[in-house]
Structure formats: C-alpha cells, structure tokens
Nucleic acid binder design. Structure first.
Lengths: 257, 257
DNA sequence: CGATCGTTTGACAAGGGTCAAAATGCGTGG
DNA sequence: CCACGCATTTTGACCCTTGTCAAACGATCG
C-alpha cells in the first residue's frame, strides 16, 4: 500500500475534494437519477449542519420534519437503558439517510447519535425519482436491522465481528467510499461493543484473534479484509443486494488502493 | 378465574364466533376506518388460505404480490443459517400483517414461517384509509424489530423473556385478543429460544425462575403476567404506543377475565 | 400401547463478563 | 520539543451466565 493509504483517500472524499459526495454516489447507484435530481442532492449537501461527536441528532419521540442525509461522519440509531446499558441498533455511514418517513408516522422511533463529528443535510423533496431512491434506502436500512437481529442472536463474538465488517464493507462500496479491500473505521472498541452486544474487553480480544488469524488488518483507524470470501462463508453472509436484485458492488470503486 | 379461562375465550375469538376478527380490531384501533373499509377487511377474511405449522408462507427472495393478513395462528419472520442455527426476527400474531410493500421493493427480505396452523388472507387494496392503516402497521413492525435488537443485544435471559412477554401482551391487546392480564402462547420452548437468542434448555430454566418468583403463570399454553408493572420497570420497557402517540391499550378488552 | 414430541433436570464445559492495572496514543499547553 | 492529562487499547486473573450433553419424565396420538 502506498503512503497515501485508504484512509487518506477516504478523507479526501469526505471533503468533496474532487469526487461526488457519498450520498449522491449511493442514491445514484440505487436508482438512475435525472440531472435535476442529482443537482438537488448536490445543492442539499451545501446546506449541511455540523454535529459534534456524542451529540444527539434526533431524540426518540421527537417530531420528524422530513428525511435527512448524513453527508459526513458516522452516526447511530441507539437505544439507551436507564441503568447505562446501551445498544446500537444500526450504524449510519456517510451517505446514509436518516429517518425517512414511511407513511403517516411523525415521531422518531429511535435516538440518532453522532458517533464522530458529522454533517447532516436536509434531503431534497421526493421528486424526479428521488422518492424511489429514498424508499430503497429505507428498505436497505430495514434489511440491516434484520441482519443485526440474526447477528446478535445467533452468531458468536468472532462471527459477529466478521459479519459486521462485511456489511460495512458492502455499504461503503455502495457509497463509493471503500478501497478494493478496506474501509475507514473511526469507532472505538467500546462503540463496536455496543453495536455487537458485547463488552469492549471482549471486542478487543476478538479483534486480536481476527488479526492473528490473518483475517483482518485494522491499523490506522481502518480495516482491511484480508480474506473476505472466507469470512463470508464462515458467517453465512447474506449480501445486501439480495433485496433489490442486481446492483453490482464489485465493479467499484474510487481508490486504486 | 372461571372454568372458562382466558385461553378458551381466545379460541372463540380465533374462530370469529361472535366478535370481530383480530385484524379488523387491530386496524380499526390504529386508524378510524370507514364502513366500506371494514367491510373489505371482513370480506378478505373469508378468502384466507390455510397453512399448516412449519410451512413456509413466503420464502426469502420470493416475488411479493401485495400485503397479506394473518387472520389466525402464529407465524414468524426467520433467518436460517446453513449449519442449522435459526433466529426468529419477529413473531407474527393473529391480526398482524405480512410483508407490507413499502416503496418499489418486490422481493421478500425474510422467510415467513407458520409456527402453528394458520390462515392467511390477501389484504384488500389500500383504499379508504386502509393505506394509512397498513403504513402504521408496518411502522409497528419496524419498532418491534428495533426492540428485538435491544432485547437480544443488552438484556439477560430473564429480562429478555419478560420483555418479550410484555410486548406480546401489548400486541395482543391491540388486536383485542388478550384478557386483562394474560394471553395465549402456543409456542414450544425451542421456538421461544430461537426468538430470544437462547437455547431451549435455558428458556426452560428462565421460565421456571419467572414462575418461582411469582412473575408469571404459564400453564395451559397461556401466560398470565402477575405483576406486569414490576416487569416493565425491571426491563425498562418502552411501550408500543411510543411511536404513534396515544392509542389507549388500557381501555381494552374482550374478556371479563 | 409404543412412538413421538416437548418439557424438565443434572452435571459439566465454555464463551463471554468483570475487575484491575499497565501500556499506548494523542491533543494541549508550557 | 517536552510534559502532562486524558481517552483508548491491551492484558491477566477470575467468575458467572449460558451452552452442551444426556437422561428421565410427561403428554398426545394413532
């Protein structure tokens, strides 16, 4: 790997240096978009609000006023218990959408929390094919929720970690943010633990095992999957594409690695 | 309790003896429905197909042709792993809806399995306010998925069981199928285990504990919650109603108990 | 009445949690 | 540039919840 590693590549992207912003790449890959739709998305990206890490973007029960787009940084849907326990229901990556209203609901079902410093933009109105893209985006989120249930319910720590990494890898590729075999992961082990239903100590032990077995390389706040196919077969991985047919994630990507 | 116990009351209901069918009660409670909408729902109930226990109602990846209504019996959204492990993603109760299409999706994201002998009817077209009811129904399902993640991820066996029972109780009340403090539960401990991410042996131990502590009475394929409020505080229970504001589950119900 | 399925129980093993401390990294200010 | 403080990572020792294996028990049904 060149000194310009995958992380720095992705930081460039996050800054919109020269490539398209992740939410545009992502939605375009879900649905072919007309020029006025892509223009609207680009324009929306300019009106993003910044949230510092640990800030709440939306609180459970809050009134919703239209869908949002996470243009930079990581966020999460979380459920907090009064004794301090916390479960991350779903990780939100740059380019993901937040709280797409489906039907007449007006209240947020979960709290959305910024995990890193983030930027959040209001999504443009659902015109010119964007409605379809938003719906598909919501469908993917639903699929991830289901996978999260199966992951936590029936996989052991090693498998959970691998399965999560595979999902993140797929989702990053969808947004054009993954190198050929790696992606940025700016989360603490504590946060990973809250996502996987484990403790941070055990996350640490599990990462060490994955590392020692040569399955991953997780230096510099990024993860490289050394043998994604083997991991996929270990955890019986169900790809994201199962739900909408065909979109080809292989033919990616932004970085020469 | 009279010799006519809560279970027999519910069996009557399931047979549509004299009361309204559960799906009608449920949808009416979500959204006030015009007479032609309720007529359509009643008529749909007449065209139900029977599925034996263990039969697949919909298989992952199958083409969807409109929403369905589970008019009798229990079903579940499941994820099966190739090594035999199985995770129930969501339990479907009489009156629940199956695979409400949201947006352009055409393929089922999960397998739906009949857990008992069931009857499944095609839902009438989304006219006359039914569209709103279907959307709210989907919203509830989404909320249950999220709760399932938190339940499995951060609660121990005892809490998981209690939390699940509280959810089932709420959902049964919504469909008018719960007595004042109990509901039918025709599932095996093995099935409960697949739902809670445990083994059947441990489910058995946990039920015994709940029983010995006087929290539940689970004879005759039904569960009576002896101290629902205490259970709610133990598991920091988030009620179903959180997402649509107000519908009053307290002022239920069909049975004098 | 055997056969089958589900429940119950016990003994034991193991995965993961808890507690505590050391090591590492990193931003800040001097 | 160094020193400090703080957050995070790493490791070890120990314990507890839950899984595994096996057998007995009970119910239901042809």
């Amino acid at each position: 790997m060149s000194p310009r590693n995958c992380l720095s590549v992705m930081e460039d992207l996050a800054g919109f240096s020269d490539a398209e912003p992740p939410h545009l790449v992502r939605l375009k890959r879900l649905v072919p978009l007309a020029p006025n739709a892509t223009d609207a998305l680009l324009a929306a990206g300019m009106h993003a609000t910044a949230f510092e890490a640990r800030r709440e973007v939306i609180r459970t029960g809050a009134m919703l006023c239209g869908p949002l787009i996470l243009t930079q940084g990581w966020a999460a849907q979380v459920r907090e218990f009064h004794d301090g326990r916390r479960q991350i229901l779903h990780l939100l990556l740059p380019g993901d959408m937040i709280s797409i209203p489906q039907g007449p609901r007006t209240y947020a079902a979960t709290t959305t929390l910024a995990l890193t410093d983030t930027r959040v933009a209001p999504a443009p109105p659902a015109e010119n094919g964007l409605g379809t893209a938003y719906a598909l985006s919501a469908e993917i989120e639903r699929f991830c929720h289901l996978r999260q249930i199966a992951r936590i319910g029936r996989l052991d720590a090693y498998e959970r970690m691998a399965d999560l990494f595979l999902e993140l890898f797929d989702r990053f590729r969808l947004a054009g943010l993954a190198a050929s075999d790696s992606f940025a992961l700016p989360l603490t082990q504590e946060t990973l633990a809250d996502c996987l239903g484990l403790t941070s100590v055990h996350v640490n032990r599990t990462l060490r095992q994955l590392r020692q077995e040569g399955m991953i390389d997780d230096r510099r706040r990024a993860v490289r999957l050394m043998d994604a196919d083997r991991l996929r077969s270990i955890v019986d991985y169900h790809p994201l594409t199962a739900i909408w047919g065909a979109a080809d994630l292989k033919s990616d990507t932004v970085a020469p690695t």
